[in-house]
């Protein structure tokens, strides 16, 4: 069983939803993102999403755009991001890691080389924002060969007729983009989720994670009522960015503060019994 499947099976047994915090690789430098990865796993992250920096993140709001720019200035590359994964896997063999980013750096690295290296490093899933189902054949056979899940995005604009198309051949879990908008801006309400998540459940048996606009423990708890996992990204990056010193470095206290937020978010999803 893959790490992702094992994790969601365990969450089901525990009768709760999971927490998926996000780290932008190399933001503001390699060491900080490595510390955050290890710390998040220790503070109750059930899965972790790692952002692969890109110059033109079209679906991301200002927070992740700036995180990407800091990371690229710090020398982030796709090879460097895979190195972070490798180091994490040397000490943690259970928490699933999901890479999230855009297609061009993967194409540039080489699709087959990327999937082989990602599998060897210990990547469990990949989310490629600008690779809709219609173009997924570019990546899917390679990922499947190396047993990496291609996590599909579903949006509020995805119609009922389109859901089977998007979910065809998908594995791992479904990532529900809960708002029409870019990351870190609006937030879906409990009413929105109560309407949207059952719509997805009708179309799939796979676990559903909800992201885009989940910021606070209270919002994470709301998501945990309806879905199988909550993704929190921009709020954690905002906390980190606000605490950077004059040289753009992250002092230990601010890394600790970000991890305290992870602790609070993890407690919030654990406090919420699943409605289903």
């Amino acid at each position: 069983m893959s790490r992702i499947a094992a994790t969601f099976a365990r969450l089901r047994d525990e009768g709760r939803a999971g927490l998926i915090p996000f780290v932008e690789a190399f933001d503001p430098d390699r060491e900080t993102s490595a510390t955050l990865l290890a710390g998040m796993a220790a503070r109750g992250a059930d899965l972790i999403e790692i952002g692969m920096p890109f110059t033109d993140p079209m679906a991301d709001g200002p927070t992740i755009q700036q995180a990407g720019r800091r990371a690229l200035r710090a020398g982030a590359t796709l090879a460097g991001t895979l190195g972070l994964v490798r180091d994490f896997r040397a000490v943690n063999d259970t928490v699933p890691l999901i890479l999230m980013g855009y297609l061009n750096p993967i194409l540039s690295y080489g699709v087959e080389r990327f999937t082989a290296d990602a599998a060897a490093a210990g990547v469990d899933g990949v989310i490629v924002v600008d690779l809709p189902t219609e173009e997924a054949d570019l990546l899917l056979p390679h990922l499947r060969h190396h047993r990496i899940d291609l996590i599909r995005l579903v949006a509020p604009t995805t119609t009922d007729e389109r859901l089977p198309v998007v979910l065809n051949d998908s594995s791992g879990f479904v990532y529900y983009v809960s708002i029409t908008g870019i990351t870190g801006t609006r937030t879906a309400s409990a009413e929105d989720l109560a309407r949207d998540i059952p719509r997805l459940r009708k179309a799939t048996d796979m676990p559903i994670a909800v992201g885009f606009g989940v910021r606070t423990p209270a919002q994470a708890a709301t998501v945990a009522k309806f879905a199988d996992a909550a993704v929190v990204a921009s709020a954690l990056i905002d906390k980190l960015a606000a605490g950077l010193d004059a040289e753009g470095k992250a002092p230990p206290a601010i890394v600790e503060a970000v991890l305290d937020d992870v602790t609070a978010l993890a407690a919030a999803v654990r406090g919420e019994r699943r409605a289903a």
């Binding site: 600008d130 173009e135 509020p156 604009t157």
Partner: peptide, 12 residues
């Protein structure tokens, strides 16, 4: 060419 956009835009 092709259609390399986020799922939110794909139906549009």
């Amino acid at each position: 060419g092709g259609r390399f956009v986020a799922e939110t835009l794909m139906p549009l």
